[in-house]
């Protein structure tokens, strides 16, 4: 009964993961991270429905709060990097290495 939701969630997670790995634009990478988080949320809600309790929905709310906080800080960092380096490419921000 809930299989379709879980398949959708897995698809979204995979698309998000692939996006994080292959895209260079920091904003897009960030959006893909959000996609993965929301895929998780969908799975949580689905399992809450399947098991008939509210635990999964509760966790989904936590994830949303964390995601919101992350967006605030993450976007601020990306904006700062863009201002200083005139680029939002994650490959250009590679100074922290060997």
């Amino acid at each position: 009964m809930t299989t379709h939701y879980l398949v959708l969630s897995a698809l979204l997670f995979a698309i998000g993961g692939a996006g994080v790995l292959v895209r260079r634009n920091a904003i897009v990478v960030f959006m893909c991270v959000e996609l993965m988080l929301n895929a998780c949320n969908l799975a949580f809600v689905t399992f809450a429905r399947q098991h008939g309790n509210l635990d999964g929905q509760l966790i989904a709310f936590f994830v949303m709060v964390v995601a919101a906080a992350e967006v605030v800080i993450g976007l601020a960092i990306i904006v700062m990097i863009f201002r200083t380096r005139r680029s939002a490419s994650v490959d250009d921000a590679n100074l922290l290495k060997y």
């Binding site: 993961g17 790995l21 292959v22 994650v90 490959d91 921000a93 590679n94 100074l95 290495k97 060997y98």
Partner: peptide
């Protein structure tokens, strides 16, 4: 071994994955 630290975010993401 330290050559592994490339500085590219995606390689870290891949290793996390």
């Amino acid at each position: 071994l330290r050559r592994v630290q490339t500085g590219y975010v995606r390689s870290y993401a891949l290793s996390i994955l």
